[in-house]
């Protein structure tokens, strides 16, 4: 396992069957329980994935999203790509060519670069304010 600051990069095993899922989750599980977990799963070695493996990925995604984090898949092997497409979950995950790209994507948009739009209700409330004043 390789960690880079708060971003965790983990290698997914070659075969992701029920047995491998259990041992993989033993390692990954505690990391998902941190505050705003940011996880990259390196899928370059995946050669075979059972439905238990796909379920595990979905469960992990659910966990990190619950804690305001994110999980991204990187370097998908053709086998992994085929299985995720087959099981209709390919579009659920954000995928990247390399782990570096995936890790970088967590910091792609710095907070101060996000335009500070006024909320949608601001205009309505300002109008209400005008009406109140008029009354």
């Amino acid at each position: 396992m390789l960690t880079s600051g708060p971003i965790v990069v983990m290698q997914v095993p070659e075969v992701l069957n029920v047995k491998e899922v259990d041992s993989f989750m033993e390692e990954l599980g505690p990391l998902l329980e941190s505050n705003r977990p940011r996880v990259v799963l390196d899928c370059s070695q995946v050669r075979s994935m059972e439905s238990a493996g796909v379920e595990m990925l979905l469960r992990c995604l659910e966990e990190v999203l619950k804690r305001d984090g994110d999980l991204k898949l990187a370097a998908l092997s053709p086998e992994a790509e085929v299985i995720l497409e087959l099981m209709r979950v390919a579009r659920v995950f954000e995928t990247f060519q390399t782990c570096e790209d995936a890790a970088r994507s967590f910091n792609a948009i710095p907070a101060d670069a996000v335009p500070q739009n006024t909320p949608w209700y601001a205009d309505v409330f300002s109008e209400l304010g005008v009406l109140k004043q008029a009354s």
């Binding site: 439905s51 086998e79 087959l86």
Partner: peptide
Amino acid sequence: NVTLEITDPVV
């Protein structure tokens, strides 16, 4: 262009 053996009989 990949050949896979799906080991999961549910699939």
